[in-house]
Design a protein around this nucleic acid. Structure first.
Lengths: 129, 129
DNA sequence: ATTTATGCAAACTATTTGCATTGCC
DNA sequence: GGCAATGCAAATAGTTTGCATAAAT
């Protein structure tokens, strides 16, 4: 299946790169719809998923929240605020051989891992007081 | 808010303990509805969430899939099959001081982490051939 | 008596999909 | 011209919620 270069895909990629920090599909859509008012959300989703598959962007699945799309393409970890749901980058070395710590794989074929820290972000800490 | 002991909550807890292995809300509902045919799914969800908050069971959020509820209450890790979506326990020591490896918390208050391995389960490996 | 919990259905959110049409290659 | 991609709307999945009623304390 040969991929075609459409303005829509270019604009979606552009928006993710511009937003930088863990944009939701909706945030991407809001940016793109500004310059291209008749783009549909379905197209944004389709392109985000395609770009993620092609490795041009990274998809971060957040349970109970909207997925995020990230321009940074090297492996790294995230932290999610339990109050506001925002996702942050975590400054920590990626443990690429974490799978080796598994004692018995029981035939499971591992291909990677997701690590998500949980907590309260500085903003929400302030609001609590 | 004082919690009351209802048959429904007891049955939900019972079903999770019986199912043992990462039951979905729907699987729990199927068990409970057998003996108590007029229980509603809403009640099952409400009780699962309450029991998880009370620490009686553990809620495992799986992005893109139904959440799982687990009778095991000590911290441990999971692996999700990318083909069938099933969730498995992983035999590996829990890294309780993983948060200490973070270089700069930027004021974020960490309270824990979720680690989910990804891969293909033995069953799905067989089916691929 | 109070007020939490239930059952039901409707609402909700994030995402996917079917289909006719458009527009790359 | 062929077929991937689009726009639109409807469908989906999992879960939550509003409300009147029932039941636990």
């Amino acid at each position: 299946m040969i991929k075609r270069n459409t303005i829509q895909r270019a604009m979606v990629l552009d928006a993710v790169n511009k937003l930088k920090c863990h944009a939701t599909a909706d945030e991407v859509y809001q940016i793109v719809v500004n310059e291209h008012p008749n783009i549909s959300k379905g197209t944004v989703y389709r392109n985000l998923n395609q770009l993620a598959e092609m490795g041009e962007i990274r998809k971060i699945e957040v349970p109970g929240n909207a997925d995020r799309f990230d321009h940074r393409c090297h492996d790294h970890y995230h932290a999610r605020c339990l109050k506001c749901g925002k996702v942050f980058d975590v400054e920590m070395d990626y443990i690429k051989d974490l799978e080796k710590q598994i004692k018995d794989a029981h035939g499971f074929q591992f291909s990677g891992h997701d690590l998500m820290f949980k907590g309260i972000c500085p903003d929400c800490q302030k609001k609590e007081k």
